[in-house]
């Protein structure tokens, strides 16, 4: 069996577990964070935005690291599966970045009194969103899939090298321009009833992200391997020469999602 086929079969076993884990953690985290965690003594109930803002921001960064790791694996060892994962993950990372930006700026109204402030974290998030868009658009711009994959991988690596530099310079720039503003994530130490739901939400987001990446990678595998025999057996489109027994066994091994 080819690597994508093996991945396809294995991931179908992992997915139910990942989804249940994600849903349980997100549900408990949401209910706890929204209804049971005490209100912040300074920000009141608006601080409950932290439970979606921080996980989205963390995932936005982790996802770019995943893109860069996939890029290395694809460029060095020519493993196509890594590129399929990168293709699947990039839009999720872009969405997470956009969500972190949105929730951050909405949070800005009650805390800073304005939608947008050139806060270091928000600014570097915005730049990261552009990096994601560049990677996604560059991949789509090439006529041949392989060129697009290699171009997107190179750009993801260049972006990864640049992200710490961008962060550092934006931090430096923002301290120069506006000293002593309240930063979103450097909140005073929280009581356990506040940070445990946050931890649950972060882990829930990770589980959700992993499940979604697997799910999207499976679609990408199908798309790229659509001419292969195993895909056709899997979809129950059996050419005349293949035996139906074989098809049934593959089908049983790989429950569809």
């Amino acid at each position: 069996m080819s690597a994508p086929a093996t991945f396809f079969a294995a991931s179908s076993r992992w997915l139910p577990w990942l989804w249940s884990l994600a849903i349980i953690m997100l549900l408990i985290g949401s209910v706890w964070g929204l209804a049971f965690a005490p209100a912040d003594y300074q920000q009141g109930n608006s601080f409950r935005i932290i439970y979606v803002h921080v996980p989205a921001a963390i995932l936005a960064q982790s996802c770019f690291m995943l893109l860069a790791a996939c890029a290395v694996i694809f460029l060095v060892w020519k493993i196509k599966l890594a590129d399929m994962v990168a293709t699947a993950a990039a839009p999720i990372g872009a969405l997470m970045t956009a969500l972190a930006l949105f929730s951050g700026s909405v949070w800005g109204i009650p805390t800073w009194g304005t939608w947008w402030i050139w806060d270091a974290r928000l600014t570097s998030m915005l730049i990261q969103l552009f990096l994601y868009l560049g990677v996604i658009v560059l991949r789509g711009a090439f006529a041949s899939r392989d060129s697009g994959s290699r171009a997107a991988s190179i750009l993801a690596l260049v972006g990864m090298v640049n992200i710490p530099i961008i962060k550092y310079s934006v931090d430096w720039w923002s301290t120069l321009h506006q000293p002593a503003t309240f930063t979103l994530s450097e909140a005073p130490p929280m009581p356990a009833s506040m940070w445990i739901p946050l931890l649950l939400m972060v882990m829930g987001f990770y589980a959700f992200f992993t499940a979604l990446v697997l799910m999207r990678t499976r679609v990408e595998v199908l798309r790229r391997e659509s001419a292969k025999q195993w895909v056709r057996l899997l979809l129950n489109i059996v050419p005349e020469r293949a035996s139906s027994v074989h098809a049934a066994s593959v089908q049983a091994k790989d429950e569809r999602h």
């Binding site: 009141g44 109930n45 608006s46 409950r48 935005i49 979606v52 803002h53 949105f102 929730s103 109204i109």
Partner: peptide, 16 residues
């Protein structure tokens, strides 16, 4: 009502 912050909290959670 979220202590008067309903718009902010629910829009952030809703969009996410």
């Amino acid at each position: 009502a979220m202590g008067g912050h309903a718009v902010y909290v629910w829009s952030a959670w809703g969009l996410t």
